[in-house]
Every structure is written in C-alpha cells, then in structure tokens.
Design a binder for these strands. Structure first.
Lengths: 168, 168
DNA sequence: TGTGAAATGTACAGGGT
DNA sequence: ACCCTGTACATTTCACA
C-alpha cells in the first residue's frame, strides 16, 4: 500500500468524519483523487467502516471486565464465539494462545449485570470463566501506528544490488 | 438520557457516517432536531468522536497480543500509562484488579516487533510482562448494548409495589 | 420544526505520466 | 492504462427564525 493511502487511513482513524476537502488538503491531493482512493480502500476492505466513539459511562455501561474462558469439556467441538455472539454485553472476542481458549471483553451496568452475563456465558458455551475487572481505562482504541511500508528486501532491491544476479 | 438519544447513539456506533437525513428517518425526527441532538451528545461527551474501522492485517499489523504488566518495584510511584503512552504499538491500556496492574493491547507487524515492543515496555515503565498472543479475532469492538434506561427501582417504583413494603 | 444559503459529496469527462 | 485534475450538479450541513 502506498504512502498516500496510509496517510489517508491514518487521518480517518483519527477523525472518521473528515470531509474530503480537509482530507485532500492533509495529504496534498485533489478532492476527486482522495475520494477515489477512499472508495478503493473501502472496497479492498482496508477501511471496514466507520463508528462513533462513545462514552460507555454515559451509556450506563460503566463496568468493563475481561473474561477468560476455557471449555468445561475440551473434547467437545469448540464453537464458543458463535454461541456467545448473541450476547450484546460482549464487546470483543479474541482467540488466544496460552492456558485459556478465548478472552472476552464485556461491558455491563454493574456487578449484578456482570454476574448474570457470566452465567449466560457459562451456560451458552459450556465453559468455565476467569474474570478480571477493569478499574479504569487510561486509553483505549488509539489510532494504529501506520508506518511507511517496510522495504521488504526480498522482492524489490536497490539498483546497486541488482547487478549481481540475473532473473529479471 | 432519553430513548431517542440512545437510538441516535446506537445508529452512529453502527455507522458513524450516517447522514442526518438517514438518521432522522431512523429515529422518526426532523433533520434539524436530530442535528441538534447530535451536537448536544457531542458536547456532553456522550459521543467522543468518530473513527474509521480498519483492517489491521492490511496495515501490516497482523499480530495482536495482550501484555499484562506489574511493576518491578511495587514501592515506586505507578505511572506506567503515561510512561507507555508514546508507544504507538499500544492500542489500549486498562488498569485491572487481580495479580497484574495493567493490561495492554498491542498490535505489531510480527514476532520481532513484538519482542522489541516488550523490551521497550519493560524499560520505559520498569515492569515485568506476561504476554498472551492473539491467534484470531472472531469479533472486536462491536456496537454496545444501549438498553432503554433501566427503571431504577430504588427511586421510582411501580404503584403495586409501593403498597407492600417500606424502605427497601 | 422548517427554511435557505453555504459547504460538501459524487459523477463525469479531459489531460498528463 | 492508470491516476490526477477540474467542472457541474445533487445532497447535506448548519444557522436562523
């Protein structure tokens, strides 16, 4: 991916409602060119969508917790993510290496709700849970790094290097 | 917060680029009214901003990991979040209950990068690390629940209930 | 809530590398 | 052939009453 595309993605992760006018100014392109590139990035799946970042406290979801789960019976087929997908309190589901099978991020209104959700998780996926309560969130979902494309020395080499071998 | 506001927030978490026209249609209000409400939600901090949802694989950040940290010397002042904030590989930082002090979510290009970031975390915050590699992500950052405001039985009770008991 | 002017989004056709 | 540019029109934003 080109550097201009990376600049566009970086700008849109920081502010997803940037106008094409501002975006064009930021990356030094015309409005039409930026518009085309954004559409291409969306089609290619690099940009998967847009979302409002909200205050979970204001939405009456002040309690966040990580829930590590592992199957009660490891011989059964492992389809926990699908079995749990219907629970709206689950924000994210990660399949992880290590002792646990999955790590869930859940957001609830309070301890009573957490207890209920944990029970629902256990019965829905037939798993045991180990819960870590989040006390505060210094920062979350920051814009990603987006470095300049790493040189990838295997495919494109500097001209001086090319002299040695044939292959073309 | 009113139900209409909740509907607005729910719609914008699902699609942050919804036009006010579409938004007004969804919640059954005039365009101007929706526009005003969104501005108020933004001012009140309920809506903190907007962001593009991106494919981290496409951005050359295919490796995600959770890094639990605890201080090497627990008697020192605990300012790990500030000390680590400059590392762009850290997506999120949660202060947690339990054995560990913080749980970090990091995104990197590969194992070599992860090793480098772990070393930087240890030296920058004077902590030990315990890392859990993410193998896959069935889902992540789903739109939150956004229920209709819960009745809050302590303050407003149904008429039938009021007869029987005193003081809860 | 409705109106209207200004800004923006979007498609189209032309031109440069 | 691809990508950038500029113009022209539909839509949206946003302040005001």
């Amino acid at each position: 991916m080109e550097e201009t595309d990376r600049a566009i993605v970086a700008a849109l992760t920081a502010d997803g409602r940037l106008s094409y006018t501002d975006l064009a100014e930021k990356v030094g392109l015309s409005v039409s060119a930026v518009h085309q590139r954004v559409r291409r990035l969306e089609q290619r799946g690099v940009i998967k969508g847009y979302a409002a970042r909200v205050s979970f406290e204001a939405l009456d979801l002040p309690l966040t917790a990580f829930v590590a789960i592992r199957p009660f019976d490891p011989s059964q087929p492992d389809d926990a993510p699908e079995r749990l997908a219907h629970l709206p309190e689950i924000d994210s589901c990660y399949s992880v290496a290590g002792e646990d099978f999955y790590l869930l991020l859940v957001r609830v209104a309070g301890p009573a709700d957490l207890e209920r959700v944990l029970q629902e998780i256990r019965t829905a996926a037939n798993v045991t849970t180990r819960t870590t309560v989040v006390l505060s969130t210094p920062y979350e979902n920051r814009p990603p790094k987006i470095s300049a494309e790493q040189p990838n020395r295997a495919r494109s080499r500097a001209p001086e290097e090319r002299a040695g071998s044939s292959a073309g």
